[in-house]
Computed example of a mutant assay.
Amino acid sequence: MENINELNIDNLTSLWVKVGQAVGHYVNENNYELSCVKNSEWPNKIWIKQPLTNELLISLSQKMASSEQSLVFPHWDIYPNEGSEIALEGFTQKSFQTGMSLPLNKPFPSSSSLTAKRVSNTEEAKFWAAIYPKCFGYVIGEEILIQTMNEMEYNLFYFNGALVGTAIYHPNEQVAGIHGVGIVPEMRRRGFAEEIMYLLLNRAIAENISYATLQASELGKGIYQRLGFTEDFIIKNYVPKFD
């Protein structure tokens, strides 16, 4: 088994790569990758897969400053030989997430109350894109779904015909990446996030996938801990500091 942290990050960044290549702008340079899409707040990231140095940070800062779109730099603390003296004074931390993983060695309770619907046409893509900001407060452009729904799985979940929430299910290699699990405001605090996870985790088990990975907000982390996910690393999301 490869390093689970690297598999987690590879699953996440493969989403960004696919979206940038299909809909927007994707760049793969020697020391960084970049993916951004117009009329969307996601992915719009610039990232590295090596220890951060001050020289590399300067290069990222210059690239972010010259970009026509606002970019976020996610920094994951998975490199033990990374210098602690890295100067991030030119950046502001926008948010942070916890990279988490779970060995898929036993099934979860079946969710009989929820039904899942994969986005499969333009109308559903537009609907998913309209619902997502209600769950998370930022926009994934509808054109992203329209152009990538055949190779990436965007799901809507319903309870007795009423919309509950969203998720992106993204298996690759040895892991099933679970992203964008969001509940619409009127359906929160009713256990639906756990039920969505039951459905997705049991599906991954049925597909003989070894691990599930995700990146949790501080608000959602407790749900995943109750399911048995472990906290593996931190992702700090930075934006340039403007004077």
Rank of each mutant, 00 (worst) to 15 (best):
G99H: 05
G99F: 02
M100C: 01
M100P: 05
M100I: 02
S101G: 13
S101R: 07
S101N: 15
S101E: 10
L102W: 04
L102G: 02
P103M: 14
L104A: 06
L104P: 06
N105T: 10
N105G: 06
K106R: 15
K106I: 01
K106D: 09
K106G: 08
K106A: 13
K106Q: 15
P107I: 05
P107R: 03
F108W: 12
F108A: 08
F108M: 12
P109W: 03
P109Q: 00
P109C: 03
S110C: 11
S110R: 13
S110W: 04
S110Y: 10
S110V: 15
S110H: 11
S111T: 05
S111C: 09
S111K: 03
S111Q: 01
S111I: 01
S111M: 02
S112A: 08
S112Y: 03
S112K: 03
A116G: 09
A116I: 10
A116L: 11
A116H: 04
K117Y: 11
K117L: 15
R118W: 01
R118F: 07
V119T: 14
V119M: 12
V119D: 11
V119Y: 08
S120C: 08
N121P: 08
N121R: 00
N121H: 08
N121A: 02
T122I: 14
E123R: 13
E124L: 13
E124C: 10
E124V: 07
E124P: 06
A125S: 14
A125Q: 02
K126D: 09
K126I: 14
K126R: 15
F127G: 05
F127Y: 14
F127D: 07
W128R: 00
W128N: 04
W128S: 02
A129M: 12
A129F: 11
A129N: 10
A130V: 05
A130Y: 09
A130P: 07
